[in-house]
């Protein structure tokens, strides 16, 4: 695995590259500014998800109701030019303005930009972007600083570091995956893992009978 440099990134995104092999980051508003020596800057979209605290009792992976979390979350839109204020210790889901498509031979990590990190903004905690993934990237926004932060849609808040795999994967992230072609922030689908909790419970019962 090696980190792609600017020239490699440009080649990977070249429209002449067949779609099956092409890295897509769209819309790329300002390639000269966004493509750095070894990363691509990503912008914040207008879409946010916030938890309605009064309407949820909590998140339990054993609960297999796949819509339970969604029902406790409020989706809203912040128009360009207006701010979304993220307060200290507040958590919100945002998304990249760009839609990403990873070809099967590339993977990536999404990380924060240092200017934002220095005022306490964390943009992503689950940072791996799998080969074959396609969609906007959900950003887990947390303000770890001491003062509220104004987040304006369209600003560059994250960066994508793209890696070449040792070889093209034979099992890219595809339709069976949890998050398929999202166009904005997606709520957790932890409920999809409820079966695993059940398996653990069965395992405990089996072990107690030994």
């Amino acid at each position: 695995m090696s980190l792609l440099r600017k020239e490699d990134l440009q080649a990977a995104m070249d429209p002449a590259t067949p779609m099956s092999e092409r890295l897509v980051v769209t819309p790329m508003l300002d390639p000269d500014v966004q493509i750095g020596p070894a990363t691509i800057d990503l912008r914040l979209s207008s879409d946010f998800l916030l938890t309605r605290r009064a309407e949820g009792s909590g998140i339990d992976p054993a609960n297999d109701d796949r819509r339970a979390v969604e029902r406790t979350q409020e989706r809203f839109t912040v128009p360009l030019g207006e701010a979304f204020w993220l307060h200290p210790r507040q958590f919100a889901l945002g998304a990249t303005l760009e839609f990403i498509r990873m070809p099967p031979h590339l993977g990536a990590y999404v990380v924060g930009r240092s200017s934002w990190g220095r005022i306490g903004l964390i943009v992503a905690t689950a940072i791996m972007v799998q080969p074959g993934y396609h969609g906007a990237l959900t950003l887990e926004l947390v303000n770890e600083g001491e003062t509220p932060i104004a987040l304006y849609p369209g600003l560059r808040v994250a960066q994508l570091a793209v890696h070449r795999l040792t070889d093209k994967t034979g099992s890219p992230y595809e339709a069976k995956a949890k998050y398929v072609s999202p166009i904005g922030p997606e709520a957790t689908k932890l409920a999809w893992d409820a079966q695993e909790v059940n398996k653990m419970k069965q395992l405990r019962r089996a072990l107690s009978q030994l």
């Binding site: 779609m19 819309p27 396609h134």
Partner: peptide, 8 residues
Amino acid sequence: DFDTLPVQ
């Protein structure tokens, strides 16, 4: 065809 947003 590759489930990619047609923008550009």
